[in-house]
Design a protein around this nucleic acid. Structure first.
Lengths: 338, 338
DNA sequence: GCTGGCACTCGAACGGACAGAGTGCCAGGC
DNA sequence: GCCTGGCACTCTGTCCGTTCGAGTGCCAGC
């Protein structure tokens, strides 16, 4: 276990490095922080910290910079979450409140988060699996062609074309629509499969094939988590770090284009509370020099999706975490209201 | 008017510069192209081309590079559109044909275009204004709350919440739904306003307010061109040019994040045929060192939206134009089929 | 266990020299 | 009149050596 002072030294190194973007030496450290000891002592402490793998030297005779492990310790033990100020919170709330629909909420959230943290923001659309059904609509487009429209409580709309095995009359369709909605409206997605199980039995034999087809399409739509969408913004902020990672911006941009990678990234983060993944803790190689701060948000007290930011490992963790937490909280409120 | 040979020299300069990314000198030019004259002659021609503003020198005693004006002449007079090869065309078609819905079509198109041109691709969602209505659905969510769902022939779905001025019964709603659809289903958006004009008259006095509200929401949705969405992809390709525009990547990324800017950009392009906007021809400042190649695409013989690519002014115009044209054509086909 | 001192290392910055590419111009040839 | 070869000039990029400063590790002393 490291002594208290050595932890202070590590904290000072992280703070200075995040501020100045330059390796920090023992002398500068004692000048900028009142540690109460001389540079020589700090040097000894630094040597220990380096042995333990918390900091590293880019070259001999340069200052030290924190390693991923150092940031990890900093985040876990040395730094809290910096709360947003009251005016900031009000601004967030106001900005989000003027959203007109779901797309707008997500769009605004992305922009807000990118602006607050000055980093790349990622917001997942409220997930289907945890939401509830508001309404299922069935439209007859042709005798044997039906369009299924699913409307969720988060305002999301999914549509599917269905080719029926047999022609399906308007009245049967109306019947199915009514029965289906009475069963599933207001219910959670997870509960739907059981609820509709015996629905085909109430129909004429000739219609059962079509009913089953419609139902299985509905279930497919519900479980189709792959279809989870997300929105990103603030990629221009990446250029601010061109200094730190010179060629590394490319893999990051590539990763950001791969929605699958991002969804996986958010998916891996813990379900409750804020998750910080630092550098190599990220499974995806292209993001090895970045950190991801993410948190779940939801309309109730349950998370329905996640949002977060991607930035260089050298980021202001307390501030970023504060912004992410605040935005998640207010988005949740907005979703609950609508 | 420039002599034929000077035009050849300009063409050679553009081609070499696009290939090598380096200013091209008179000697290299004669070696790589059989112009039939000596470097000295080429030098004279270059001096003329420079006087006319078609090429420029980054520094004294460096080779020449084309100016925006030079590229313009190249595109207008010296270069054709390079058609895609048969295998390429087949690959495009196959890739697009496996799309499952509109989002997927647009997503695939973006990825395809980015990959083919190795540049940033922008695809506008099929626009509402020129499409036709497939179906209008009205759902009662609460006594005085209706959800309007508009389904277009391109498969796009728009939804709106409507707070009614007075409670509106299920039967009235069904009535309105039926009448509305019989009027507008299959009709072009532009024709809808006239078609629904006298619809309220067929309803009871107490319901007219609500009917009018619903109709005006529908019309709003139809004309709401601002809501036009688009998708971009291939931003990672920008890093390939970090060599050319060192700090210029930032404004480009910023521009790409501003959907408004991009929509305007595509909007400004001509409605028919391919449009190439080179460097400063782009109104938006951040894109002054890029060129935009765009073209309309549509399900019939009429364009319903646009797509294109954004790249450095130093791009392979014939190849890019060929790829853009081919992709637009096949997307159109796919949309027409579905 | 902390401190001041000292020798050492290494990268960044500076500057001069040099090579190479490219130009403009001019006199001569077809 | 136009093209060509030759020549002097200019500029950039690069290489190399020097210097400077920051930072370190180690050690003896308090």
């Amino acid at each position: 276990m490291l002594s208290e002072r050595r932890l202070q030294v590590l904290r000072a190194i992280v703070q200075d490095y995040v501020g100045t973007e330059e390796p920090v030496g023992s002398k500068a450290l004692t000048e900028r922080h009142s540690l109460g000891v001389s540079p020589a002592t700090v040097r000894n402490d630094m040597a220990v910290l380096e042995d333990e793998g918390y900091i590293a030297q880019p070259h001999t005779s340069a200052g030290r910079i924190p390693t991923d492990r150092g940031y990890r310790l900093f985040v876990d033990k040395l730094a809290g979450v910096k709360p947003m100020s009251a005016p900031e919170r009000r601004a967030i709330q106001n900005f989000l409140e003027s959203s007109v629909d779901l797309d707008d909420v997500v769009g605004r959230t992305v922009r807000l988060l990118a602006q607050l943290t000055r980093q790349v923001a990622v917001v997942q659309y409220p997930s289907l699996t945890r939401s509830t059904v508001r309404h299922v609509e069935l439209l007859s487009l042709a005798p044997a062609r039906v369009m299924l429209v699913l409307i969720t409580d988060t305002g999301r709309v999914e549509q599917r074309m269905i080719d029926c095995p047999a022609p399906f009359g308007e009245s049967s369709l109306a019947d199915l629509r009514a029965r289906l909605n009475s069963k599933v409206a207001g219910r959670r997605f997870a509960d739907v499969p059981v609820l509709v199980e015996d629905l085909p039995e109430g129909f004429d034999l000739e219609d059962r094939g079509t009913v089953s087809t419609v139902l299985s399409t509905l279930l497919e739509t519900l479980v189709e988590e792959n279809e989870e969408r997300l929105m990103i913004g603030g990629t221009a902020n990446l250029t601010r770090f061109t200094h730190d990672f010179p060629l590394t911006i490319q893999p990051v941009l590539e990763a950001l284009e791969e929605q699958v990678v991002l969804l996986k990234l958010l998916g891996e983060a813990g379900d409750s509370g804020m998750t910080v993944r630092i550098g190599h803790e990220n499974a995806y190689e292209g993001l090895n020099s970045t950190s991801v701060v993410s948190v779940g948000y939801g309309s109730g007290n349950e998370a329905v999706a996640k949002l977060g930011v991607v930035g260089p490992t050298r980021m202001d963790y307390p501030g970023t975490m504060g912004a992410v937490r605040a935005v998640a909280r207010y988005v949740g409120q907005i979703l609950a209201e609508s």
